[in-house]
Design a binder for these strands. Structure first.
Lengths: 257, 257
DNA sequence: GTCTCTATTTCGTGG
DNA sequence: CCACGAAGTAGAGAC
């Protein structure tokens, strides 16, 4: 690992070039300005930023606040470091799509260069597909005696999350949202239903939108279009899933403790 | 600025606590694992990562590749640093929504702490709102003798980008996309039109989708629903805008050179 | 505060 | 490779 405090511009140049050619992770604090041209185009005036080059050539420039990088390059075809008019330039180019990021540093506060090894796996505990699978294998959590017919089935406008059958033999078309459902979710469901109604009589179809909460406009649209709303408790579904996984010896507890 | 190379766990603890309480930017390289619980929930096994605490309490954990952070906290209510069972813990809590991020570091490779000042302004040269404004002040770029009525106007399902009037006195409802428009853009426009048709007879309404390109399904859906498609050349609009800005002495050239 | 929409969205998945 | 949809989306703007 290399740590350089307050380097002059030539030392910074050499360090960055070495770090890039050896495909290491580089984290620097710079006083810089940035220009970007590609899918969009932007200018960022001078200021202090965190500058990162990752081992795959991804470049990130972060301001001192906020989640999002102010400028970036997801991965690069090449990165060129040079000195022009006494200023350090880092130019990161991506070819598909063609994009150019030009970082012009007036001052380099610090550079850290390291070879990072990260093989640790990442587990999402509950996303929409998992919620869908938990409901598919436990359709009664929706509060009725449903049976599962199909999961994530393509019909023409898109994918229906879940098909169930209710006690009266009707086809239940389920759209699932992991977070509060907005009017868009209702529209999506209506779209599926109108497509399905070519094959199934409308009276045999029950569209249900499943989510922890619903926006007001979603509630209005649902009422208007005959869409049922069913709330779910994601934490409850999570505990059901955990139980299932534990039963199969795949529990997350393995990883958590 | 403080730079610490390979600190022991107690020195790391003290440095982090100082950095947090003084609201500085902290960038560290850690061998850590991460647990997240909140809107979602996830587990990240041990590995080397870039760890950042920003001056507003935002926390980012980056793996050595890729654009996105693997874990994060957009801004925090509080951050607590402690040692438990000989391991460094950084716990970042956000209250709305309630989310907890727990970083457990087994090894600290480096810590850099600095007070960054970044007042530099950020200019987007061409985003959708700018394209919309350029068309609004030059509606003839769409190839007809349009006049502008209104911009970014709320109707119930949402916001219409642009209202124009054509030579036959019809109300032109414009939806603008900066990049290739997909079928969703058509749907959005249809949504507005069906809402407007309560007030304006359908024959007096002209929905137009404006974008540099259109996906095949967008073209099909547009034809089916009577939506017109008009291509724009964003670069051409950009030169129009530049001319307008220069005329007003607000040209970007001020900033670019 | 809620809702809506854009984004150099990114990221995955499916065709 | 393109097209579509989800995201712990974030961030901005309007009401």
């Amino acid at each position: 690992m290399i740590i350089i405090n307050n380097p002059n511009i030539n030392d910074a140049l050499i360090a960055l070039r070495n770090g890039i050619s050896s495909k290491n992770t580089i984290v620097a604090l710079l006083h810089c300005r940035v220009r970007y041209e590609g899918r969009g185009s932007s200018v960022l005036e001078y200021g202090d930023r965190i500058f990162i080059i990752k081992q795959d050539g991804a470049v990130l420039i972060h301001r001192p606040t906020g989640y999002s990088p102010v400028n970036w390059q997801p991965s690069t075809s090449y990165i060129r470091v040079s000195i022009e008019n006494g200023l350090l330039h880092i130019i990161a180019v991506r070819n598909k799509p063609r994009e150019i990021l030009d970082v012009e540093a007036k001052k380099v506060y610090s550079i850290v260069i390291a070879s990072l090894t990260d093989t640790g796996r990442f587990y999402e505990v509950m996303d929409e597909s998992i919620i869908r699978d938990v409901i598919a294998s436990n359709p009664k959590v929706l509060g009725e005696n449903f049976t599962t017919i199909d999961v994530e089935k393509k019909i023409e406008p898109g994918f229906v999350d879940l098909y169930l059958r209710d006690e009266k033999g009707r086809l239940v078309v389920v759209e699932i949202k992991r977070v509060k459902a907005s009017v868009n979710a209702v529209k999506q469901l209506i779209k599926y239903v109108s497509s399905l109604s070519k094959y199934v009589p409308r009276g045999k179809l029950r569209p249900i939108l499943v989510a922890p909460e619903f926006t007001e406009s979603a509630i209005v649209a649902a009422k208007k279009h005959g869409v049922e709303l069913k709330s779910i408790d994601v934490l409850k579904l999570e505990s059901i899933r955990r139980r299932e996984l534990e039963k199969r010896g795949e529990g997350l507890l393995r990883y958590i403790r």
